[in-house]
Simulated assay, not measured.
Amino acid sequence: MRFAFVLTSAALIGSAFVTSATAQDTGESLYMDACASCHGAAGMGAGPLAEYMTADVPNLTQLSQRNDGVFPMLDVIQTIDGRTGIRGHGSEMPVWGRQFKAETIDDAGIYGSEVYARGKILSLAYYLESIQED
């Protein structure tokens, strides 16, 4: 059962990332569900919960500007994931890697749930890349 779920999940995730446009659509949906409450629907750091944070909520549309015009993909992935020691906003940023992995660990097992989590994180990163200001 787990093996079949892992194969099916990997195939679905792989097919979902055939184009970055598809990943961006998936990422936008994930962003609205997981990130917009703090970062705002437009990603400018003005979500409804931002005023309750003890740390500043960054404007996610200016990540490239703050990185000499280059989108810092690896840093973004590691910050969203949160399991690698890079923590966004001090300790207020949720550890999404752990959360996403927990969503399927019972059905997919340790490896399948890791594929699932990484797919979600990559989709979010592609979406953030797509909303960068010039």
Results as ranks from 00 to 15, higher is better:
55 A>W: 11
8 T>M: 10
32 M>T: 09
46 A>S: 11
71 F>C: 03
112 G>V: 03
110 I>Q: 14
118 R>Q: 13
57 V>I: 13
51 E>Y: 13
21 A>G: 07
105 I>E: 14
24 Q>F: 00
82 G>I: 01
18 V>D: 01
29 S>T: 13
130 S>I: 00
89 H>I: 12
27 G>Y: 00
73 M>I: 03
66 R>Y: 15
81 D>A: 09
94 P>F: 10
32 M>G: 11
38 C>A: 11
77 I>R: 15
60 L>Q: 15
28 E>G: 03
21 A>H: 11
94 P>C: 09
119 G>Y: 01
82 G>T: 04
104 T>V: 12
123 S>F: 00
55 A>H: 07
86 I>M: 13
134 D>N: 12
82 G>N: 02
118 R>A: 11
64 S>A: 15
128 L>S: 02
38 C>M: 05
72 P>Q: 08
69 G>C: 03
78 Q>C: 06
113 S>C: 05
6 V>L: 07
12 L>M: 12
50 A>C: 07
47 G>T: 06
108 A>I: 10
134 D>F: 08
11 A>G: 03
1 M>P: 05
39 H>E: 05
77 I>H: 05
6 V>F: 08
11 A>F: 00
9 S>D: 14
46 A>G: 06
131 I>N: 02
95 V>L: 04
128 L>F: 01
114 E>S: 15
83 R>L: 04
134 D>L: 10
20 S>I: 06
116 Y>Q: 09
121 I>L: 04
117 A>W: 07
37 S>W: 10
123 S>M: 03
108 A>S: 11
